[in-house]
Simulated scan of single mutants.
Amino acid sequence: MPALSEVLTALDALWPAERAEGWDAVGTVCGDPAAQVERVLFAVDPVQAIADEAVSLGADLLVTHHPLYLRGTTTVAASTVKGKVVHTLIRGGIALHVAHTNADTADPGVSDALAGALDLRITGPLVPDATDPHGRRGLGRICELPHPMTLAELTAHAAARLPATAQGIRAAGDPERVIRTLAVSGGSGDSLFDAVRAAGVDAFLTADLRHHPASEATQSVGAVPPALLDAAHWATEWPWCEQAAAQLDAVSDRHGWGLRTHVSRTVTDPWTAHAASVPPTPTHTTGAPR
């Protein structure tokens, strides 16, 4: 079995920490570099349910997409939510490693996995990485559908192919509009609207779309604005876990490590219920409004 330090070197080669955004918190949160690693669990969120799952699995390493301490901390006391996660992992002899924005822009990265889950053909990055001589790294992906679909059909397709969540998939635009090209970005993507418009795609699928940016993005003078599809944040990033596990499997095979990788199926999306709005019943009034 390899030492944790060897596995971390492999993870850093897949998702170099220097390619993370300056505000991000990636890399190893806890773990003994000399400890041996046999089982690795991949998940989106380093929450208590995932830490407990790692303990039950007998994992030696937990790799998550989202950071545990994105905004820093002054305590890891077990009386705090995140401190309890750290204590659970350390007691279980489990290291924690984070690949966040450095996995978003990798080749392959988070958006490649999202496009793969939707059976899309990738034609290039939405926001290219200027330092990539091959032009494959970058944020988001521009894709072609396997065949034209109406927006309504594409929305149903995304709902069927992505992990189920209470939110499902919301769409903005004419449901009968025919979609041939689609930009995708795992996680929060409403900062990419300028790039989406510049790409000239028919639609954009991402997560966490806010009212005002979405409203503005669906309106334009002249050109037809892209349709929007809003999925749950967790659902757009979970496919990366399977892709990342396969990448580590390949590294393990090359080195003869015999690692046993697992992907958590625990839904850590925070939303747990959804009720569709009921259209109000029309009422008739007499007389002029006051």
Rank of each mutant, 00 (worst) to 15 (best):
A3D: 14
D12M: 01
L14R: 06
E18T: 09
R19I: 02
W23G: 04
D32V: 05
P33D: 07
L41K: 10
L41A: 11
D52Y: 05
E53K: 09
L62C: 01
V63E: 09
L68M: 01
T73Y: 08
T73V: 06
T74H: 10
V76R: 10
V81L: 11
G83L: 04
R91T: 13
H97L: 05
H100T: 02
T101R: 09
A103V: 03
D104I: 01
D107M: 08
G109C: 09
D119S: 13
L126Y: 01
L126M: 00
H134P: 00
H134T: 09
G138P: 00
G140Q: 08
I142R: 13
P146S: 11
H147R: 15
H147P: 00
P148L: 10
T150P: 03
A159Y: 00
A166I: 02
I169Q: 03
D174S: 05
E176C: 04
R177W: 11
I179A: 11
R180C: 08
A183H: 10
G189E: 07
F193G: 05
F193C: 08
F193N: 05
V196W: 05
R197M: 07
G200C: 09
D202S: 08
F204E: 08
H212L: 14
A214I: 02
S215R: 14
A217N: 04
A223T: 14
V224M: 15
A235W: 11
P239T: 06
C241D: 11
E242W: 12
Q243S: 15
A245R: 11
A246V: 05
A250K: 05
H255F: 12
H255C: 07
W257C: 04
R260I: 12
H262V: 03
S264Q: 06
P270F: 11
T272Y: 01
A275H: 15
A275C: 11
A275W: 13
P280M: 13
P280G: 11
A288P: 00
P289K: 12
P289L: 14
